[in-house]
Design a protein around this nucleic acid. Structure first.
Length: 112
DNA sequence: TCTATGACTCCGG
DNA sequence: CCCGGAGCCATAG
């Protein structure tokens, strides 16, 4: 529940949304930012993800840019760890880009 | 307080 | 869709 989150922490709001991403689905930074009411702060979402390393329940690998490109894969420990995690969820990834991105795309507002 | 930065996005060509 | 440029804004130093 977003309302129950400590709104003082922008990061935690992002983390909460990311945690709500269904298994086998992905979303974009902009979608999250928009859901948080800061559509122009997509970069902040990415920034928050950078700090998500301290979190364990934050599937940052399910968050990609609007093109479905794994822009943050280099921030993971392994070179292709992010891709492996996505493929493990049934998502096809080629050249650091999610195949049929629109098909796997998940919008926070839908929370399907 | 001010400046730099970024796992982004939008816009025009 | 690709490319270059501009905008946005929270956090770090």
């Amino acid at each position: 529940m977003i309302e129950t989150i400590d709104k003082t922490n922008f990061f935690e709001r992002v983390y909460d949304v990311v945690r709500q991403i269904p298994h086998g689905r992905v979303t974009s930074y902009g979608a999250i930012a928009k859901y948080l009411g800061a559509a122009r702060s997509a970069r902040m979402v990415g920034w928050a993800m950078n700090a998500s390393h301290t979190m364990e329940d934050v599937p940052a690998h399910r968050v990609v840019n609007r093109k479905g490109l794994l822009t943050g894969k280099f921030h993971f420990d392994g070179t292709n760890l992010m891709q492996q995690l996505l493929e493990n969820e049934g998502i096809k990834v080629v050249e650091n880009q999610i195949v049929d991105f629109e098909k796997y795309f998940w919008e926070p507002t839908k929370r399907d």
